[in-house]
Amino acid sequence: MKITKDEINHVAALSRLEFGEDEIDKFTEQMGDIINMAHQLAEVDTEGVPETVQVVDRETDFREDKPEHWESRAELMKNVPEKADGFIKVPVIIDKDDNE
């Protein structure tokens, strides 16, 4: 599968990363190699093999229902670009299912 420069630029924009032209060339090639390597998995015969959910043979590690207060809202809010009255302020996005 061929990865294009446009796809790398698109992923970079989504990731809020900025690259020079030479870096874009390098990543296009590297990403292509990674994707092609992953594609080799498609050649494996998985007929009748249950999907792997976990690679460790262990049970769910339960936690007792004991509430703990986090010390500081201010600490959590440090990374928030815009805030108002303790809320995180974000641009309106409407196209969303209400139960999500």
Binding site: D85, G86, I88, K89, V90, P91
Partner: peptide
């Protein structure tokens, strides 16, 4: 005002 306010 074009903004949403998120409470987690």
């Amino acid at each position: 005002n074009g903004y949403s306010y998120v409470d987690l």
